[in-house]
Measured scan of single mutants.
Amino acid sequence: PAHPYDRLKTTSTDPVSDIDVTRREAYLSSEEFKEKFGMTKEAFYKLPKWKQNKFKMAVQLF
Rank of each mutant, 00 (worst) to 15 (best):
F44K: 00
G38N: 09
E32L: 02
F44H: 00
T10V: 13
K56F: 07
L28T: 01
K54W: 11
A43S: 14
M57R: 14
K9C: 15
T40H: 10
A2G: 11
E31P: 06
V16P: 06
V59Y: 08
K34A: 15
A58Q: 14
K41Y: 08
K46G: 14
E35L: 13
A43W: 06
K49I: 14
Y45H: 05
V59R: 03
A2P: 15
K54R: 13
V21D: 11
S30M: 14
A2C: 15
Q60V: 05
D14G: 04
P15K: 04
P48K: 05
K49W: 10
K46L: 09
P1W: 12
P48H: 01
T22K: 08
Y45P: 00
Y27V: 03
F37S: 00
K56T: 01
F33V: 00
H3R: 06
D20A: 04
M39S: 02
V59N: 10
N53K: 11
K49H: 14
M57N: 08
T40G: 07
A43P: 01
F37T: 01
S29M: 02
N53M: 09
E31G: 08
T13W: 05
Y5A: 02
Y27S: 03
K49Q: 10
T13D: 13
P4Q: 05
A26W: 15
P1G: 13
E25W: 02
A26I: 10
K46M: 14
R23P: 05
P1H: 13
V16C: 11
V21W: 08
A58K: 13
S17I: 12
F62H: 15
A58G: 08
P1L: 12
M39P: 00
T11A: 03
L28I: 04
S29Q: 03
P1N: 10
F44A: 01
P4G: 08
R7A: 11
S17G: 11
N53L: 12
T40K: 07
V21R: 10
V21K: 07
K56V: 02
V16Q: 02
D6N: 01
T10E: 08
Y45C: 07
D14T: 06
E32A: 04
R24G: 04
E42R: 08
L28Y: 03
V21I: 13
S17E: 12
S12Q: 06
Q60L: 13
K46N: 14
K46W: 11
T11Q: 07
Y45S: 09
P15A: 04
G38Y: 05
F37E: 00
K56G: 02
L8I: 07
L47M: 10
T10I: 11
P15Y: 04
V21P: 10
P48Q: 02
D18M: 05
K51F: 09
K54T: 09
A26T: 05
E42S: 10
N53F: 04
H3M: 08
K41W: 11
V21C: 10
K36E: 00
K9T: 14
T11I: 02
K36L: 15
T11D: 14
Q52T: 00
S29F: 05
F62D: 14
K46V: 10
M57H: 10
K41Q: 12
T40Y: 06
K51D: 10
D14Q: 03
I19A: 09
R23D: 05
V59C: 08
A2L: 15
V16K: 02
Y45W: 06
A2Y: 15
K51M: 14
Y45A: 06
A26N: 08
L47Q: 06
A2M: 14
T40M: 08
F33C: 02
D14R: 04
W50P: 03
Y5Q: 04
P1T: 12
S17F: 14
Q60W: 07
K34I: 14
T13Q: 12
D20K: 03
Y45I: 02
Y27R: 01
K9Y: 11
L47E: 05
F33P: 05
K51C: 14
F33E: 01
A43N: 12
K41V: 03
K54L: 13
K49C: 13
T10M: 06
Y27H: 09
K49Y: 07
K41G: 01
R23W: 08
S17L: 15
K51T: 12
K54M: 14
S30P: 14
S17N: 12
K9D: 13
R7P: 12
D18F: 09
D6H: 00
D6Q: 00
Q60K: 09
E31C: 09
H3K: 04
L8R: 00
E31I: 11
K36M: 12
G38R: 12
E32S: 08
T11E: 10
Q52S: 01
M39T: 03
T13K: 07
E31W: 06
F62W: 15
K51W: 11
L8S: 02
T22F: 07
K41D: 05
Q52K: 01
P4E: 10
W50E: 10
L61Q: 03
R23T: 08
M57W: 12
F33K: 00
S30G: 12
A2Q: 15
T40E: 11
L28H: 03
N53W: 05
T10S: 04
E42G: 06
E32F: 06
H3N: 06
F55V: 07
M39G: 00
W50N: 05
R23H: 11
D6A: 00
E42M: 11
I19T: 04
L61H: 03
W50H: 09
F33W: 01
H3S: 03
